[in-house]
Structures are given as structure tokens and as C-alpha cells.
Nucleic acid binder design. Structure first.
Lengths: 100, 100
DNA sequence: GGTTGCGCTACTTATTTAGTAGCGCTATAG
DNA sequence: CTATAGCGCTACTAAATAAGTAGCGCAACC
């Protein structure tokens, strides 16, 4: 069994790469093309976008749509669901900081 | 209302910085000193550790313990709770990838 | 007053991300 | 045809971020 990498460590590492979560987020409503993604991410450079798309495909969080662009896989969609509670927490956190 | 930064964006940005989540994770069981954190994070350089500690303090996710080292604030602990579902998802995700 | 361990800074190097130009391909229009 | 327009993407350079290593200033203890 040697040196199992804990799943949580692996995903935190992946999600820590810049733009990864943002790209997933932008695909929440359906497929987007390479250039649409670039625009959605405020002009993110094609270099990084391409790297991220490869990375996310290898990790099966997104794939190419039959018709056009990139789409989230079932796993990718689930990840978004899992992130929802974080959204709620984030709002309280933000409010909390502003008090001080 | 001008240019509100969505809370989720802000926190994703923060958590995307390397070692941030890891440091929070390592503090889950109680306070650790600067050097203990370095060891826990496998020799993470003091430069980055110090940066992250400042960042996390400003953002009220951790603070200095009265007695020794650094501890999570209430908000920091809550963030860990929120991350638990991600852990479960991550395990399924990892298993899923290995099949192929 | 010498030693030990602490939090931390200063400095250099390596890795990651950003920015910009433009290629090769396909599809549609003139 | 050919031309022109948009696409996914690569190549190259520059800037920002992180890693690595040495060691300082301070406090506690002997």
C-alpha cells in the first residue's frame, strides 16, 4: 500500500491552482467554448486556461461536449454542490470581518 | 452598491494560496508553534509560513494563543466543518479515477 | 555568561502565472 | 476558388509567487 496520498490532500492541491475553481464555476450553467471561458474569466491567458483544461480533463472533472466547448462531468457537477455550504459560510465570514 | 466582491470569490482566492488550507488543517487539534507548523507542513519555508500566518490572522481565521503558538478562531474551526463534505466527495472522486 | 530554542527576517533561486503575438484549421460568403 | 472570420491552441517573454538557506535578536534556563 506504501504511500497513499489522502484524497483530501490531492483535491485541495488541485483546487489550489489558480483559476481551477473559477473555471468550474463558470461552467455551472452548461458548456462554454475556449474563448467564452477566456472572456468569462476576464481575459485569463490562453496558456493557463489550456493547462487548466487539460488538468481538469485528466482528473475527470470536465470533458469536451459533443457539440461545442467544454462541459462539467457528473463529478464536476457534484463538486459544485459540495461547495454550496462554503458559499453560505463565506457570507457570514465576510460580514463578520467588516464589523471590525 | 458599486463593486461588491462576492464572498465566495474572496474566500476561494484566499484558499487558493498555497499551504493555506493545509495550515488550517494542521491546527485542527489545537495550537501549534511556528516551528511545529513548519515540521507539520514538511519543512515549509519560514518565509511563506510567516506570510500565511499574517494573512490568516488579518482574515480572522486564526490568532495567537494566550499560552503558546497559533490557534484557529471560531470562524477557522467552522471552515474546517464546512470542508468535511468535501472530504467525503474527494474519496469517491479518487476511487472513481482509479478505475480507469 | 554560555547555551538552547524560539519567532522571524534577509537574501537568492526556482517555479508558477500572466501577457501578447500569431499559427493552422474549418466553415461560411462573395 | 479565395478570402475572411472565428476557433482552439502554441510559443515566447515578463512578472509574480513560492522555496531554500543562513542566521539574527530575544528570552529562559543553567
Amino acid at each position: 500500500m506504501s504511500k497513499e496520498v489522502p484524497a483530501i490532500a490531492e483535491i485541495v492541491d488541485l483546487l489550489s491552482k489558480k483559476w481551477v475553481m473559477r473555471i468550474i464555476w463558470e461552467l455551472r450553467e452548461g458548456p462554454l467554448t475556449f474563448r467564452e471561458l477566456q472572456v468569462a474569466c476576464e481575459g485569463l491567458s490562453p496558456t493557463v486556461l489550456n493547462n487548466r483544461l487539460k488538468l481538469l480533463q485528466v482528473n475527470q472533472l470536465l470533458g469536451k461536449d459533443d457539440v461545442r466547448g467544454y462541459v462539467l462531468t457528473a463529478m464536476g457537477l457534484e463538486l459544485l454542490e459540495v461547495y454550496k455550504p462554503l458559499n453560505h459560510w463565506a457570507k457570514r465570514w465576510q460580514a463578520n470581518r467588516k464589523q471590525k
